[in-house]
Computed example of a mutant assay.
Amino acid sequence: MKTAIGITDAHRQAVADVLSKILADETVLYIKTKNAHWNIEGADFYDKHKFFEAQFGQLDELIDNVAERIRSIGHYAPATMKSYLSLTQLTEVTGQRNDSKGFITELLEDHQSIITALREHIKSFANDFHDAGSSDFATGLMETHEKMAWFLRAHLK
């Protein structure tokens, strides 16, 4: 059955394409946060192990929400690592040591990159594609990433 939600097919496709990139970024960041959780070393191991666990839990929920948003506008969500790596703006390569500062710095940079991209998408969803729902959705994602980035940044002070 046709998706008739007041957004043209072309605009829904454009929004789904952007959301697929966001989904890829969220998934790569999730994996990188899992890496930090699993491989953290140092005197603060337990504290940071738990901290990263809380962060990847939040990202898991975001991933599901993004995929469901893609489905709700009538498209299929990408669901392979190959597709995520081709769509993401992030890199999965880590150059840091397995300590708190290295992991936190890298994850913070990724969150900030996602925040910057989301800020632009908020405008284009509403203005270019006439999709207030996806604009509002992206605003919520951005706010979540801003809070997660704040928590990461606070550890670097």
Rank of each mutant, 00 (worst) to 15 (best):
K2A: 15
K2D: 15
T3D: 11
T3P: 08
T3K: 14
A4M: 14
A4Q: 15
A4P: 13
I5L: 13
I5W: 12
I5N: 14
G6P: 12
T8E: 14
T8Y: 09
T8F: 09
D9Y: 09
D9V: 08
D9T: 10
A10N: 13
H11P: 02
H11V: 09
D17R: 01
V18G: 03
L19M: 06
L19D: 03
S20W: 01
I22N: 00
L23W: 06
D25N: 05
E26P: 03
V28M: 03
L29D: 00
L29H: 00
I31M: 10
I31Y: 08
A36W: 11
A36C: 07
H37A: 01
N39Q: 13
A43S: 13
D44N: 11
D44C: 07
F45K: 07
F45S: 04
H49A: 11
K50P: 06
K50F: 14
K50D: 06
F51N: 08
F51C: 12
F51V: 13
F52Y: 15
F52G: 05
E53V: 12
E53A: 14
A54E: 15
G57M: 10
G57F: 08
Q58L: 15
Q58D: 15
Q58Y: 13
Q58V: 15
D60K: 11
E61V: 14
E61M: 14
E61A: 15
L62M: 10
I63D: 04
D64R: 11
D64E: 14
D64C: 14
D64H: 12
N65P: 06
A67W: 05
A67D: 14
E68A: 02
E68W: 03
R69A: 02
S72F: 02
S72E: 05
H75V: 03
A77H: 03
P78C: 00
P78A: 00
K82T: 09
Y84K: 03
L85H: 03
S86L: 04
S86Y: 12
S86D: 12
L87H: 14
L87E: 08
T88K: 02
L90H: 07
E92A: 04
G95F: 08
Q96A: 11
D99A: 03
S100R: 08
S100D: 08
G102L: 07
G102I: 07
I104D: 10
T105N: 15
L107N: 05
L108D: 05
L108G: 02
E109Q: 13
D110C: 06
H111D: 14
Q112L: 11
Q112R: 08
T116G: 07
R119S: 01
E120K: 01
H121S: 04
H121M: 02
H121I: 00
I122K: 00
F125H: 05
A126P: 00
A126C: 02
A126W: 04
N127L: 02
N127C: 00
D128E: 07
D131R: 06
D131W: 10
A132W: 12
A132P: 07
G133A: 09
S134D: 04
S134I: 01
S135L: 01
F137V: 07
A138Y: 00
A138P: 00
T139A: 01
T139G: 01
G140M: 03
E143V: 11
E146S: 05
K147C: 09
M148Q: 09
M148D: 02
A149S: 10
A149Y: 09
A149C: 07
W150E: 06
L152M: 10
R153M: 13
A154T: 07
A154G: 03
